[in-house]
Design a protein around this nucleic acid. Structure first.
Lengths: 363, 363
DNA sequence: CAGAATGCTGTAAACGATTACAGAAGTGCA
DNA sequence: TGCACTTCTGTAATCGTTTACAGCATTCTG
C-alpha cells in the first residue's frame, strides 16, 4: 500500500543502504546519486516508517502524556508547557487523555511501550494506577499531582500553601467565619486545598466548624448551588472561599440573582486564577497556579531521566502558588492587577512565547 | 534493557510463538503452558513492544490528532469528543499540538507515519500545510475547519450561519447599528463569522459600515480594549456582537468599569457559548458550537476511511450552530436556559457520558 | 489397525528501517 | 606496478513482534 525504502531504492537503482544514508545525511554519498534518490523519494511521496525506524534505533524522540478525564483550561495549558519545552529539545509529544478508570489507564501504559521514550502521567484520583508491570522496569516516568513516591519523579502544585495563604489573607481582612466550597472528594487538588483551608483556619484562630464546609465538585453549577446551603449557615459566615474559580463564578451568579452584594455582604475568593477571573463582576480574588510551568518542569525532568538512563535519581518537587488580590474579597486592590493586555501569568520559561502564536479557536 | 518476548520464552521454556499465542489469545495452547507463560510474563514485567507489533500487523489501532497552537476550552472539548468515540471502537488517540508554522506541522505528519492508522487535522490558519508528500498516498485524513477540498474528508462548523442568525436576532430586537469585534485575521472561524455578520447586516438591511467593525484577536483583553474604539463610533451602535465569548466578557468588564449598563445602553452578544457564559453578569447571549460533536464526527469519518481503505470516498460536512438567548442582549430569556446542573450542551452521542467521570483539575 | 483428524508446539520468514562490514573503484605515491 | 588510502556502494544482520507452515503426539473413526 504505502511506499517503502526498498521501492525507493529500486526506482533509484541503488540499495536501501544508500537511500537510508541520503535521507539521514550520514555516510558519504555521491552528489549525483543523492540528487537522484531525493528526486525519486519525493516523486513517490516516500515517508519513512517511524515504527520500523525506532525499532532499530531504540529511540522514538517522543514523550507521552497521560491525562485523566479532565476538562477546562488546565488541560490545554499543561500540554502547552510540555509541548514547548519538548520541542526545544527536538522531541515530539503525544497525549492520551480521558482515562477514567484504572484498567483503561493501564492499557494505555502498555500501548505506549515502544512508542515513547518517556512518560508524564497526571494522576487521576487518589488511587494510583499500577505502573510497574505495565511498563518496562526503569522506564522514565514523571508523576504529576501524585502522592510522594520513592520510585518515580514527582511534581506537585502547592495547593495546600495557596489555600492556607488565602485563608490567612481573609482573616487579615477581619473575617472570622470563612465558608469553604470543596471540590470533588476523590480529587487530590481538592483535598489539598481543603487541608490548607482547615489548617489555616486553625492556625489563624478563625472559627472552626464542619458546618462551614459546603460540598462542591469544581463545576460552575456546584457553586451556584452552594449559595442556598451557605445562606443557611448560622452563625452567618462573612467570607466564602471556593476551591476553584469556576465555582466562585457560579456562586457570584447566584448571589447576583438574589440581589446579594459582593464583597459588601460576602467576600468571595476562588482558586486557579483562570484568565477571565479578572474580567468578571466583581474581579475575582484567587490563587494563581503555574500550570504551564508545571508542564515545563515535568518535561525537563523526563528528558533528564531519558538522558541519564538507569542511573537517574528520583526527585520530588513542589511548585509555588501565589495570591492574586482583586475586588471580590473587599481588599479592592485593582491597581495591583497587571494592565489589560499585559503579562498576566507567573513568569515562566515560555513567558516570552505566550501570545505570540497561540490562537483561540471557537472558545 | 527492557524485556522482550524472547526472554519470556526462554524463562518459560517455550518458543516465542507460544508466548505470542498466549498473549494474543489465539491458537490452541495447553492450559498448563499458558499458566506458566503468564506467570513468567508478569514476573518479568513484560510489555510487548507496540512498534514492533504494528510493524508486522500493519495496524496501530491508534488515530492521531494534529492541532495548531490554540488554547482554551475548545482544545480539551474536541479531544474529548474524539477520545470517547475512538475508544468505543477500540482505538487509542494520540494528540500532537501547538504547531505554529508549516514546517513544524509537516515534520509532525512524517513523525506520525507508521504510528497511527489515520489522522484528524485541525487547520491552523488560512494556509494549509502540504499533506501529499508528507504522508503516504491514500492515508486516511479528516480535515477540521478546512476550506473545501476534493481529496480529503472535511468537517466544518457553521460559523457563517451562527453569525448570520445572531445578527438577524439582534435586528429583530430593533437594533440597526450593530458593531462587530472581529477575531484574528488569519483565523478561519473568525473570518467566517465576520462574513456571516456582513452578509446578515446586508440581508436584514441594518446599517453597513466599515466603522462598525472593530479588530480583535479572540482574547479577553482585546474585548476589553475594544470598548474605547466602540464608544468613539458615530453614529453610536446599539448592539455589539463579539466574535467569541472571551472578548464579549472583556467588553462587559470594560463597560462595567465605565458604569455603562448592559443591555440597557448596549446589547452584547458573543460566540461559542462557553460554560461560564450563563454565569456572568449579565448572562451572555451567544452561539452554541457543537465542539465535542465535531470531534465525534471527525473520528467516525476517519475510522470509516480506515475501514474502507482505498475505496473510501471523500465528503464534506458542516455542523450546525444554535442561538442561545440570555439577558445580555435584552431579550431576557433567562427562562429558556436549562436549569442549573442540567443539560447545557447540544445533544450528542456522548451526552449521557458527560459529567459522569470528567473532573476539573485546577481550572 | 490404518488413516485422518485434532491439539499442541517450534522453526523461520516476514514487517521496514539502520548500520557494521566488506568490496569495488579510483587516486596518490614510491 | 604495487600498496595504501579514500570514496562510494552493496550485503546482510538486526530490532521485537506475528503467523504460515510443518512436525509430532494423541485421539478418533471406520
Amino acid at each position: 500500500m504505502s511506499v517503502t525504502i526498498r521501492e525507493v531504492a529500486r526506482a533509484a537503482l541503488v540499495s536501501v543502504a544508500t537511500v537510508s544514508r541520503v535521507l539521514n545525511g550520514k555516510g558519504p554519498v555521491h552528489a549525483e546519486t543523492e540528487r537522484r534518490i531525493r528526486k525519486v523519494a519525493k516523486r513517490l511521496h516516500y515517508v519513512p516508517h517511524g515504527g520500523a525506524r525506532s525499532l532499530i534505533t531504540r529511540k522514538t524522540h517522543t514523550i507521552g502524556v497521560l491525562l485523566p478525564d479532565l476538562y477546562g483550561e488546565f488541560f490545554s495549558e499543561v500540554i502547552r508547557g510540555i509541548d514547548l519545552c519538548a520541542r526545544r529539545s527536538g522531541y515530539h509529544v503525544v497525549v492520551s487523555s480521558s482515562h477514567s478508570d484504572r484498567t483503561e489507564t493501564e492499557s494505555m501504559f502498555r500501548a505506549m511501550r515502544g512508542r515513547v521514550d518517556g512518560l508524564i502521567v497526571l494522576y487521576p484520583g487518589t488511587r494510583p494506577p499500577v505502573l510497574k508491570g505495565n511498563l518496562p522496569d526503569g522506564f522514565p516516568v514523571v508523576l504529576l499531582n501524585a502522592p510522594r513516591s520513592r520510585s518515580f519523579d514527582s511534581l506537585n502544585i502547592d495547593n495546600f500553601g495557596g489555600a492556607f495563604a488565602m485563608v490567612r489573607h481573609l482573616v487579615s481582612l477581619g473575617h472570622k467565619k470563612i465558608a469553604f466550597v470543596t471540590g470533588p472528594a476523590e480529587n487530590r487538588d481538592a483535598s489539598e486545598r481543603l487541608r490548607g483551608y482547615r489548617d489555616a483556619v486553625r492556625a489563624c484562630s478563625a472559627d472552626e466548624s464542619k458546618a462551614l464546609e459546603v460540598p462542591g465538585d469544581f463545576r460552575e453549577w456546584a457553586g451556584y448551588d452552594a449559595c442556598r446551603a451557605i445562606r443557611n449557615i448560622r452563625p452567618r459566615p462573612s467570607a466564602i472561599f471556593a476551591a476553584n474559580d469556576a465555582m466562585a463564578i457560579g456562586l457570584l451568579c447566584a448571589f447576583r440573582e438574589k440581589g446579594i452584594r459582593v464583597p459588601e455582604q460576602y467576600a468571595i475568593a476562588g482558586f486557579d486564577d483562570i484568565p477571565i477571573a479578572r474580567y468578571i463582576t466583581p474581579p475575582l480574588t484567587s490563587v494563581r497556579v503555574p500550570i504551564s510551568a508545571l508542564g515545563e518542569r515535568a518535561t525537563l525532568r523526563v528528558l533528564k531521566a531519558i538522558e541519564d538512563g538507569p542511573r537517574h535519581e528520583w526527585r520530588e518537587e513542589t511548585l509555588p502558588t501565589a495570591l492574586v488580590i482583586r475586588e471580590s474579597c473587599g481588599a479592592g486592590a485593582r491597581a495591583e492587577d497587571p494592565p489589560a493586555g499585559g503579562v498576566r501569568r507567573v513568569p515562566s520559561v515560555s513567558e516570552s512565547h505566550i501570545g505570540k502564536n497561540r490562537q483561540r479557536l471557537s472558545g
